[in-house]
Amino acid sequence: MGYLDGFKVTFMKLFEERVTTEYPKEKRPKPPRFHGRHVLNRYEDGMEKCIGCELCAGVCPARCIYVRGADNSESDPVSPGERYGYVYEINYLRCIHCDLCVEACPTEAITESKLFEFSFANRSDAIYTKNELVVGDDGLPQRQPWELWHEGDDLTTSGWMRATASAGNPDYQNRVGWSGELGYGTRNPEIGQHDLAKDEKSEMPSEEHDQSEDLH
């Protein structure tokens, strides 16, 4: 009954469980290293991390980042350093979400969140300015009117992932790492990133400092 076997196959499919996720209604957890839209992080005291160095703009292969730095005023500094990002714009019609800007950033000022559901009705909405990119006082990304957010989405959107060395330490080259303090919530560092002395499997030199301490 070779011809009729197929009918049995299709019929039995009727009783199988569906694997479909009904997307806008239910969202699956995104992978931890998801590349969504960017956020500009701030320190816990509210200071901006961006120092206006333009490294992100320089490394961007899609040329979608436009940065202009300016000197901090002594009475009312925006960032702890000498300079800060005066203009910061990302054009999302160009951005390819490669994360190279995150790699390049010396202060972990720019990271990528997990937000990706935005649809613009015009070009000016597609260019996110600093006002839109910088995180709110609670450390969460700001919601833009054209972005689709469901309740609780913002809790899983923190982006503080970088694929290689933070702080430019060459010993950490090609190691996944992040500091435990960026963005919303905290996450334990991966093996080899936090306390190298306790990490027996690490091939790192034992005299190296804890990476997250480097940032302080």
Partner: peptide, 10 residues
């Protein structure tokens, strides 16, 4: 869609 393990119009 049931026979193809999908959900179909819903």
């Amino acid at each position: 869609s049931d026979m193809q393990n999908r959900i179909g119009p819903n």
